[in-house]
Write a protein that binds this DNA or RNA. Structure first.
Lengths: 120, 120
DNA sequence: ATTATATATTCAAATAATCGAATATAGATA
DNA sequence: TATCTATATTCGATTATTTGAATATATAAT
């Protein structure tokens, strides 16, 4: 019972829902999510922690970056919801904006480009 | 966006989730829900109001009784969730107890039986 | 008209969730 | 070692949610 209540609780926040829709498109590091959603670092990090604690996302470290992606759905409901995030929610205006922002952000990882340029 | 946050918010409470699973089985009046869940009247009524406000359930009056049932799903997510309530959640132990309690309650509407007996 | 029953609402208290600002940590670089 | 960058956590304040107890409303029965 609690597992389902916690699932819905984890999803009942605008920031977390926006993150879930982004991640249902592809794996992203925290700073890419910050950029796409135009939200402060602490806020994004906090909500990612909630989602991770709820078992909805997983993370992996790569150097300084920590990449987040959707976890394996733990039951039928999660499976259905994840599918909805990919198929239905992304068509909603608000989420479409986030997604197109995200495309720009991952297309130009500015800091990274700058650093590599310095190296060459 | 808000519509989806509100949907998940409405479902992120144990009492409301239990009610939704009951109602995905069949239409019930408030006192039947109270009996099945063994919860006080005010609590059930309040949560029904939240669900109704979220557009997840509808009600109809029949004399003293007000019967609640699931509303028409307003989008793909709701459609999927309602289906999960019927097909998956009902298999969970906690919900199974509620459902079997509910069967007993609608099988023996005690007050009603008593009143009819007096009439005869 | 009074009483009884089913349901809804109000109120104040308790609990939980969210936030911005500041600080901490961990890995990379110099 | 000292410094930089990405991410996480803590703190106090604010806001939202849930609750029991009491009360209100609406219909039905006497």
């Amino acid at each position: 019972m609690k597992q389902y209540v916690d699932l819905f609780k984890a999803l009942s926040d605008e920031t977390r829902l926006r993150i879930m829709v982004l991640l249902s498109e592809e794996e992203l590091c925290v700073c890419q999510i910050e950029a796409a959603l135009e939200l402060p670092q602490a806020k994004v990090s906090r909500h990612l922690t909630v989602l991770r604690y709820a078992g909805l996302v997983k993370d992996r470290r790569d150097g300084l970056w920590i990449y987040y992606s959707l976890a394996e759905p733990k039951n039928e409901i999660e499976k259905n919801l994840f599918e909805c995030f990919r198929k239905c929610l992304r068509k909603e205006d608000a989420f479409k904006t986030d997604l197109s922002n995200m495309k720009k952000c991952i297309a130009k990882p500015l800091d990274l480009v700058a650093r590599m340029a310095k190296k060459l």
